[in-house]
Design a protein around this nucleic acid. Structure first.
Lengths: 349, 349
DNA sequence: ACGAGGGTCACAAACGATTGCGAACAGAAT
DNA sequence: ATTCTGTTCGCAATCGTTTGTGACCCTCGT
């Protein structure tokens, strides 16, 4: 109840003295797992003393002795990208409920910075990592997997797939989008893929080709172009190139919503109306896209759930460092297509 | 160069043994501040041994001894609110450059959760706090100030103002917006304020009244209504009430962009065109608002700079716990008005 | 030549918790 | 009464680093 004002923090020794026991005993009495090694009576006395003095265990000292920090780190390429905050939030909720603290680091898309950060965090005894920055070939992650560092990949996977992965069912997402467009009557659909050094860039592109073939449409008419990055600027550049090339598609599927923004702005610049002359579909369902004119049809990913699940899988990894038996290693969450105003039947031509 | 694969981490003792010195000496040799207590020769030898063995100091042990963790925590109400990521990013850049690690926690607007988080973080020896969740009356922050915990408030201040504060020049922002509207010919302007338990809600409302008076307009015609929260939903509710009340204003200034979203959607619902029949101005310049139809005129806050400055001020607080002399305590950064399509001259009436 | 002084370094005590080990004591069984 | 089993708790080592203290040697000044 009472609390120290600006005095020395009360430590275990103080509690022990107040309860008239040895610090070691006090430690056992306070720890739920070892509580049964001390009598009910002393346990209660210690607990009361701790309460009365306002004892807060020193997590640093504990961490030194137990080599567990109850810190997990989440690595994202860019916090300001609205894709990540929901995942962070999902992870944070699960972790804090389990007594972990989430450290968020932003690599600014710089893999040297990423390596530095990971090193720092490992020095701090971080228990595990949630990594949202995976590249298709990612030596750092391979090293971490090799070193046995508990880690989970989220949203993006690596080629080697040596670490557990939590993602969305992107193939289905792309298929839903293509089915929707074909159902509206589109036959010539282009795909503006994300960067090919990310799993999402590659997987979605592959899924697109497969979906097109599934409708027995010629793939050649459904040109696939990769953007340099998942940004509006990169999307605009590629969209401009596509428009200039005079391709006669009636619908564009974008690798993600940011690329779709670039597409929309280039269409506007070129005087091509959406959805009248060109339908556009995004990917991710960023919070704002329903407010655009036209509201963007897009694939909705369960971002928060991905974050939560990643956190759960990671906690499993941390606890079970011995066996890989029966552990969740590759998991995909379901997606939905949010149909809005940016898609419509193709012009009569 | 060579590195331990999955073996025991190499510790200071190992380095010392390899260099043929005592661990204490090795410690001094590696620390730039104490390096001059050992001869150049040994210092070089130790440094080389450390390099060769791939020594990474154990930050937990160091933290225990020095009671400095080089961790600072940033507390935000909601990571998914686009207002905060830029501030986080700004802070993170400054801090990581100075060797600090930034821990981000999301309180979900729950002050009980906030208290729990702060307690946990203090147990972990967190060096300082950047707080973006301040309420106008905030007992937790007053306690922290009283306990001498290094902390800096960002974006929102408290009534007591006992902690350093970094914010934007909101009065000027509001004044710019009002001047702009008045310059367009508006005479009847409403203000939809944010919640009055935050400093931004109160300050901006006060600034609005003052700006209106500055133009010698009757304040009564410039109705001020407070929204329950800085959300689109709360903004919509208040906007609806305003519209239903039949107020004859020609422009609405919103407490922030999210509230402006609510206003825009209610205007659309009521068949009132923007900017034709009603001008709308937001606050914050969220990344997406320039893409709306119409693009939102809004006050741009230097969010990243606010985060950076907050981090700098906090580091000052951490280093100088003895004197308050010559320290930056209340600092405001300049703002701009981004004039876009949601404002126009009022209808001829 | 001797004491003073400064530069190097080893020694050991912290920091605050956890935990293996064994002592003390209880009650029960023989 | 003695031994045995088992509970309860104190003792002390330990985690890996930092840092105050003092030993030692060398040099310089007188």
């Amino acid at each position: 109840m009472s609390y120290a004002c600006r005095m020395q923090r009360v430590k275990l020794t103080d509690v022990a003295r107040a309860a008239g026991v040895h610090p070691g005993t006090a430690s056992r009495a306070l720890n739920p797992l070892t509580r049964d090694q001390v009598s009910r009576e002393t346990s209660r006395r210690v607990a009361r003393a701790a309460e009365r003095l306002g004892y807060i265990p020193n997590a640093v000292a504990r961490g030194l002795r137990t080599s567990r920090s109850y810190i997990v780190a989440m690595i994202v390429p860019d916090v300001t990208n609205p894709l990540f905050p929901p995942m962070v939030r999902g992870a944070e909720q699960v972790l804090s409920r389990a007594g972990y603290t989430l450290v968020l680091t932003d690599t600014d898309n710089d893999s040297a910075a990423e390596r530095r950060q990971v090193e720092q965090l490992r020095a701090r005894g971080t228990d595990g990592f949630i990594v949202a920055t995976a590249r298709w070939d990612d030596p750092l992650l391979d090293e971490m997997a090799g070193a046995g560092v508990p880690a989970v990949l989220v949203n993006r996977n690596t080629a080697s797939a040596r670490l557990p992965y939590v993602g969305a069912d992107e193939r289905t997402g792309v298929t839903l989008a293509v089915d929707h467009l074909v159902g509206l009557g589109h036959r010539r659909i282009c795909y503006l893929a994300g960067p090919q050094d990310t799993s999402t860039g590659r997987e979605r592109a592959a899924a697109f080709r497969q979906a097109i073939r599934g409708h027995e449409l010629p793939v050649v008419r459904s040109q696939v172009r990769a953007c340099a990055a998942y940004t509006e600027a990169a999307g605009a550049i590629t969209a401009q190139a596509l428009i200039r090339s005079g391709h006669d598609c009636t619908a564009i599927l974008a690798g993600n919503d940011l690329i779709a923004f670039g597409v929309l702005s280039e269409l506007a610049k070129a005087g091509i109306s959406c959805p009248g002359q060109m339908s556009v579909v995004g990917f991710n369902d960023l919070p704002m896209v329903s407010k655009l004119t036209p509201p963007l049809t897009t694939v909705r990913l369960p971002l928060t759930a991905m974050g939560s699940l990643a956190a759960q899988v990671l906690m499993g990894e941390i606890d079970a460092t011995t066996t890989t038996d029966g552990r969740l290693t590759q998991s995909l969450l379901g997606v939905e297509l949010a149909v809005r105003g940016s898609t419509a039947p193709p012009p009569p031509s």
